[in-house]
């Protein structure tokens, strides 16, 4: 009797022990899974949180307030910052020059990058030299490029006007005429972009099998027909990638503008990002700068989505 009772008690004890153990194990497992997840995600979450998420949310928050000179929020104004911004003539002018700049940069970068890549993909003697040269702008910093182009475009002492003078061509006021200043910064940005664009497109071209062109030669397709019907479709994923990267990069242009024109002359090259910089750090108008940042983010997002929707159908992966 006693024995059996003992046994029973012992069994019960064992049972409860076992189930407790199991529960403990499960709990431990759950806890440790979560722990591992935190361990893996933690560092990047922390970095992203501090440098991306927090500034993003703070910007959005500030765009709904007025701010003092120290960037502290004072009065909640809702969407008033947005309505006044979108009706401001100077902001709209800045917006339109940004679009002109972005479109100019994108079209020229891709067309020239593709042209250089197609040229460098030919089997010619010494082509390796050109391949190196074409990709070399990747190694040039913005400030060096800006100074170089200031030398080129300077209206009085610049290389371009001196050459024009020698050839008895009209000398243009590259940096001081509002329209020409825009061309100047577009050309400089395109030059900066070319190295990367060339490298990506050239890499894509190298991956196109020669036999496709051999077959097209035999079937009677001209070289230009081959370019549009074979080369471009074959490298469309890379073209698409370069397009998106150039678009976003152009919207965010700052360095060249700051060093070459500082937004002038007469705000002709006052692109959005430069304007944000001026409003925030020169004029101390943080809420307006925040509002402009949000608007820029939305524009870039919308443009990128449009590009995906419109172009992705024509991309052949």
């Amino acid at each position: 009797m006693l024995k059996s009772f003992d046994n029973k008690a012992l069994e019960e004890l064992n049972d409860s022990n076992a189930s407790e153990n199991e529960r403990a194990k499960k709990g431990l497992k759950k806890r440790s899974d979560f722990g591992y997840a935190v361990l893996f995600l933690g560092p990047s979450l922390l970095l992203l949180g501090v440098f991306v998420f927090y500034p993003m949310i703070k910007t959005l928050y500030m765009s709904l307030f007025l701010t003092n000179n120290f960037g502290q929020t004072t009065i909640f104004v809702g969407l008033k910052n947005y309505t006044s911004l979108l009706t401001s003539a100077s902001f709209l002018a800045s917006l339109s020059s940004t679009f002109i700049y972005v479109i100019g940069v994108m079209v020229l970068t891709i067309v020239l990058g593709l042209a250089l890549a197609v040229f460098a993909n030919q089997k010619l003697k010494g082509i390796q030299f050109f391949r190196t040269i074409f990709s070399s702008t990747m190694g040039v910093s913005v400030s060096v490029a800006a100074i170089f182009f200031l030398f080129v475009f300077n209206p009085t002492t610049g290389l371009l006007n001196q050459m024009a003078g020698l050839l008895h061509l009209p000398q243009l006021n590259w940096m001081t005429d509002p329209n020409l200043a825009m061309i100047t910064v577009i050309v400089s940005t395109v030059w900066m972009n070319l190295g990367f664009t060339f490298l990506v497109l050239f890499g894509a071209l190298q991956a196109v099998p020669r036999s496709l062109y051999d077959a097209a030669d035999i079937e009677g397709a001209s070289k230009s027909y081959q370019l549009f019907k074979i080369t471009i479709p074959m490298i469309s994923p890379s073209l698409f990638f370069v397009g998106i990267v150039t678009l976003i990069g152009a919207f965010k242009s700052f360095g060249l503008i700051d060093l070459m024109t500082a937004g002038g002359p007469n705000n002709a090259t006052n692109l959005l990002v430069y304007r944000i910089y001026q409003d925030a750090f020169l004029n101390g108008n943080y809420s307006q700068a925040s509002t402009e940042s949000i608007v820029l983010t939305i524009i870039i997002a919308v443009m990128t989505i449009i590009q995906f929707k419109v172009l992705e159908k024509r991309v052949n992966y």
Binding site: P209, S211, L212, D214, I218, M234
Partner: peptide
């Protein structure tokens, strides 16, 4: 005036 069949077929994937 000839045609050719390649070892890799040389088909246009797109």
């Amino acid at each position: 005036k000839l045609s050719m069949v390649f070892q890799s077929y040389a088909l246009y994937p797109f």
